[in-house]
């Protein structure tokens, strides 16, 4: 589990946290991701948007090790300069050593465990080490007790941020939908990530829950954690993200600031479903040869 050192040229520049290069993923005959490259900057909220079925979740699964990409390279640079080639790591190692945490499009909580327990499970690796891989913990060593206290403090901190303190002792499966979303996010935060990947966190939320989610995301960013966010609803993304990447049929069609992307004719076409030849017309008019 030594950190992979990147000998490639050019190496990632200082403020890039994630660099995806020529990523391709094939399912049988389906090219779900086709030569996709992008970068996410440290401290930013980077949004990955695109219509349903564009391949956004597949990109996430490649980054977090749940799929092995058919081709391509995914490099993660930690704050201390260590670099990891994520496509070579196992899924749990990506969270454990490369400090990337994620949530799922269809929420995956430990529904039979309480809210607090969910947050404690997320601190498994820290607690495991402190408990001397269980043996010393069984003897009740003070270092372990201190680690347990710290883990509960951390859980409390995030419970407060997610506005879930009152529900701490209830089973996670008993929470309303919006609260489950927030719990899944703070659970990922309890692993101590540098990059947090959120798969459609706003999907299915009512306006009040959406507002609570935005507050949470802002407080996460103010902790210095970079966020990679999937959304298929453009309007949600535009307010909160610093950088937007647009994916359609597994290919990047646009990349830039929210304003740039919002006005990109290709993006408009992808989202409004304009006929292909019309798009060509629009592109012919608007494109000055800079983009791709």
């Amino acid at each position: 589990m030594t950190p992979e050192t990147n000998t490639m040229t050019p190496t990632i520049t200082g403020d890039t946290i994630l660099k995806v290069e020529h990523l391709s993923m094939k399912f049988g005959g389906l090219m779900a991701i086709n030569d996709f490259s992008f970068e996410a900057r440290r401290g930013d909220i980077t949004a990955l948007i695109g219509p349903n079925g564009a391949g956004k979740t597949t990109v996430f699964n490649c980054i977090t090790g749940f799929y092995k990409p058919t081709m391509g390279m995914i490099t993660l640079r930690q704050g201390d300069g260590r670099e990891h080639l994520l496509e070579r790591l196992k899924d749990f190692e990506i969270t454990k050593s490369a400090k990337v945490a994620r949530t799922f499009q269809n929420i995956r909580l430990f529904s039979g465990l309480t809210v607090l327990e969910n947050l404690l499970v997320a601190q498994h690796n820290v607690l495991m080490k402190a408990s001397g891989y269980t043996i010393l913990g069984l003897l009740g060593l003070p270092t372990y007790k201190k680690a347990v206290g710290a883990s509960i403090e951390k859980a409390k901190y995030w419970l407060d941020k997610a506005d879930l303190t009152d529900r701490a002792d209830d089973p996670a499966g008993d929470l309303p939908y919006g609260a489950q979303r927030r719990l899944e996010i703070v659970r990922a935060m309890c692993t101590g990530p540098e990059l947090l990947c959120l798969d459609e966190p706003a999907a299915g939320l009512n306006p009040r829950e959406s507002a609570a989610l935005n507050t949470l995301l802002h407080s996460i960013r103010s902790e210095g954690v970079s966020i990679l966010l999937i959304e298929h609803d453009m309007s949600v993304v535009m307010e909160i993200s610093d950088h937007v990447v647009v994916l359609e049929y597994g290919q990047k069609i646009s990349d830039g600031t929210p304003d740039h992307v919002k006005n990109d004719p290709k993006v408009i076409a992808a989202y409004l479903g304009v006929e292909d030849d019309e798009v060509d017309e629009v592109i012919a008019v608007e494109l000055e040869g800079g983009d791709r």
């Binding site: 990506i94 995956r108 909580l109 039979g112 495991m128 659970r187 692993t191």
Partner: peptide, 20 residues
């Protein structure tokens, strides 16, 4: 932690892996 991880495993193995 190990016992909690067992129960978490019973509840959702994929979520466990996503938590390292």
């Amino acid at each position: 932690p190990i016992g909690r991880a067992w129960e978490a495993l019973r509840e959702d193995e994929i979520a466990c892996r996503s938590l390292g």
